[in-house]
Simulated scan of single mutants.
Amino acid sequence: QQTGETSDCNFRYAQIYAVDIHFLISCETNGYQTNMTCKWNPNGIQLPQGSCIRFMYRIRNDISCDALQGDLHGADAKECQLGVHDECTFQPLYLYFCHIMWIEIHYKLVTLRSHPANVTPMDVVKPDPPFNVKAEITRTEGFLNISWERRELPVYDLQFEVRYSGEEQDRKWKTLGNVYNEQALMEVADPCVVYVVQVRCKRHNGTGHWS
């Protein structure tokens, strides 16, 4: 705007948004290995109005996740329709195929992509917990004898962790790890106390989650 011999210039301010696209994607395959559920952590992200988030993925059957190189996003990507809790569920499931996943943020003409997460479903199995857990105090030695059964799936070897505590209100758990049989014998201080016993399992010497 010009007034006499002076001019006033008014510049429009640009809208600048700083978006952290470092998302943590974690996955878990159920004990019967029928589906894999993947979640992503939004890290409290605040997006500009009118933007949208998409959970994208590719499935590779020609190469292992460990051997992947270069740009993994790819033009053959598909969008996962997220569930109620922003979860992506893969079913039917290809246990030994590499699943490549990332988050895309779309705003006007701009697309931001997070670093991809590469997951093989067989490596993230969370087994169902052992069942038919039994515990008794041996009459002669006064040991706590604990036994249990494992599920048929997954078929690979499992390792177990056993913990026990007296039934008092302020429980102090004692843990026995690296158990590879379906039985454990533990020495207790007082064989006359009522004990609470818990058993969990995971893949032996491998990746995966505790039950």
Rank of each mutant, 00 (worst) to 15 (best):
P42S: 09
M122Q: 04
T29H: 05
T37P: 02
G83K: 09
L95G: 00
K126V: 12
T175H: 06
H106V: 05
I100N: 02
Q33K: 01
E152S: 05
Y57E: 05
F97D: 15
R171I: 10
R200I: 08
V199E: 04
L153Q: 13
V188I: 08
Q159M: 15
C98Q: 06
M186C: 09
R203L: 06
E168Q: 06
Y13T: 02
V193W: 08
P191K: 00
A117K: 01
K39N: 08
R150M: 08
N181V: 13
T120Q: 11
R12C: 12
F55R: 02
D157E: 13
V110K: 08
P127A: 12
P121R: 05
C52R: 07
L144N: 03
A67K: 11
N10A: 13
S211N: 12
G44N: 04
T29Q: 07
L24T: 09
D71E: 13
D157Q: 10
E28F: 02
Q198N: 07
G83D: 14
N43Y: 10
Y96C: 01
D86P: 00
M122N: 03
C27F: 03
W102Q: 00
C80G: 00
L144K: 05
A75W: 13
D128W: 08
D71C: 09
H209S: 05
Q198D: 13
T111A: 10
Q2S: 09
F143Y: 01
N10S: 05
E5Y: 11
F11I: 15
K126E: 07
C52Q: 06
N61D: 14
H209M: 02
Q169L: 14
E5R: 11
P92S: 08
T6S: 14
R150E: 11
W40F: 15
P127N: 12
Q2A: 14
G177W: 14
P130N: 06
I59Y: 07
